[in-house]
């Protein structure tokens, strides 16, 4: 009985299962080849570089589950990055307020996206193309030149291991308490992402609103006829997307101690987030997948780029190899066409 349910669970989440295996294989191999593999330092560096794209990929997941696409996630991340670079200094209370303000900015922007999509009845991809431009404009207003002022302690504490975090703020006897030992080497950024995923995403997915998001992606008409709260779910999905993008922007500001209203960077994050979502097993047609998968997808994308540091590959070839890997990965979706029994199922 248990075997059957495990089997069904895997077959229903085949894309996700493959992504997890791929990530494990890639990351274990990476650590074996790395001269200082399996050490805390490598893990900290890797997780630091993954956090922003991981949050943005999770943000992208929600509109994709609806069957849409959010072209503004990178821009919202950039906007919140600039907001954070203005406010994250001063007394602890001020810093907390600044963090709240940053997250609020992204959430409100997501809410605006949701309202435009629901009440304006504009296709998400076009609506967010336009609001993305607005977000970049606002970011440029806040921060015409790259720079910023972010509390140094905060930057150090959140971008290193748990021990450093406790040490910086004098918690748990400066990090030397016996109960902290088992966790001391875990990178804080990794915990942050997992924390947000568990505290925000998992409850959302289990709520009526979250399930409605999946239902809309599968068949909007049927969801409507079943009396599900369509409008609420759509607005909630975009709002949550804005919040997650803001988490990415906030972390980027803490990590780099600065804000940068860079249009190219925003575009790159948006496009990579789509790639991460697809790699994580979420269908672009909507209705299947999840943010945890996108998290794994984002990690895969990053691990691939880590390989260039340990392998002796001409850096000029890096974009080409990244592109080929991405193309090959998404082309695996083509195996679906071989299993289709009725030709008509290929066409929408």
């Amino acid at each position: 009985m248990r075997m059957v349910s495990v089997k069904r669970g895997v077959s229903q989440n085949l894309g996700f299962a493959i992504a997890v295996l791929l990530l494990l294989a890639l990351y274990l191999t990476y650590n074996m080849m790395h001269p200082r593999g399996f050490s805390s330092a490598v893990a900290i560096q890797n997780s630091n570089e993954t956090v922003a794209i991981a949050f943005v990929a999770m943000a992208q997941t929600l509109p994709v589950l609806l069957g849409g696409l959010d072209l503004s996630v990178g821009a919202v991340m950039t906007l919140t990055n600039c907001v954070a670079s203005e406010f994250l200094h001063g007394s602890p209370a001020q810093i907390l307020l600044g963090m709240g303000l940053t997250l609020l900015t992204g959430t409100l922007f997501g809410l605006m996206n949701g309202c435009i999509v629901v009440y304006g009845r504009i296709q998400p991809i076009i609506a967010t193309l336009a609001t993305g431009a607005i977000a970049i404009g606002l970011a440029l207003l806040i921060r015409p030149e790259p720079g910023g002022n972010v509390d140094g302690d905060l930057g150090w504490a959140l971008t290193n291991s748990v021990w450093d975090f406790a040490d910086t703020y004098g918690l748990a006897q400066g990090g030397d308490a016996w109960w902290l030992r088992p966790f001391a080497d875990i990178p804080v950024p990794f915990l942050l992402v997992v924390f947000v995923a568990i505290v925000v995403w998992v409850p959302f997915r289990r709520s009526v609103t979250g399930r409605t998001v999946y239902a809309i992606g599968s068949a909007e008409g049927a969801a409507y006829m079943s009396g599900l709260p369509i409008n609420r779910a759509k607005i909630a999905a975009f709002t949550l997307g804005g919040f997650l993008a803001a988490c990415g922007g906030l972390y980027l500001a803490i990590q780099t101690s600065s804000g940068n209203a860079d249009i190219q960077q925003a575009g790159a994050y948006t496009l990579n987030s789509i790639a991460a979502v697809v790699l994580g097993g979420t269908s672009l047609l909507g209705g299947t997948g999840g943010a945890i998968g996108s998290l794994v997808g984002a990690m895969i994308l990053r691990v691939i780029s880590f390989y260039f540091r340990i392998l002796d590959i001409d850096p000029l070839l890096q974009p080409l190899i990244e592109g080929l890997v991405l193309l090959a990965a998404v082309s695996f979706g083509a195996f679906r066409t071989l299993r289709v029994k009725n030709q008509l199922d290929l066409f929408r």
Partner: peptide, 19 residues
């Protein structure tokens, strides 16, 4: 033929061309 959503396939082709 491969039935990959155009959004992601053309994105991949774009990255390869850039490379």
């Amino acid at each position: 033929y491969l039935r990959i959503p155009s959004m992601i396939f053309t994105l991949g082709v774009d990255t390869v061309l850039r490379g």
